[in-house]
Amino acid sequence: MSIWAFALIAVLFAVGSYLLMERSLTRVALGVGVIGNGVNVLIIASGSDAGEAPIIGREGVLADPLPQALVLTAIVIGFALLTFLMTLAWRNWTITGNDEVEDDVEDRMITRRAEQTEKLGDVPHPEDVQT
């Protein structure tokens, strides 16, 4: 297997991971697509040696069809995932006007409560303050 295939995989993974870190959902979706392709190339590159297409009637050394079947399935699944992510991004856009992932409100409230307790000492427990 050639070194170039692995270079390609590395580039696809790097680009995909970078895009996954973005806050914008459209870029996350693109990242999923790119990283998915990276995985597909990885399976093809490591899974089988080059050869003739594995079809009845072909002569010579045939390539192993199983990794190709795996990759075909992975492509179909990736297609569905990408569609779903795009729908999510579209929905997010209709609600908030952008396609960015928001913060978790409940999580921030807990943090604030903890800070409050720290500041005020152990006497007024937040539960008692609120009831």
Partner: peptide, 19 residues
Amino acid sequence: TFLGTRGGAISHEPTDGVG
């Protein structure tokens, strides 16, 4: 039909305000 057109895709309207 769902992503290519604007609106009409999801039957429930957003429950909270459009920002």
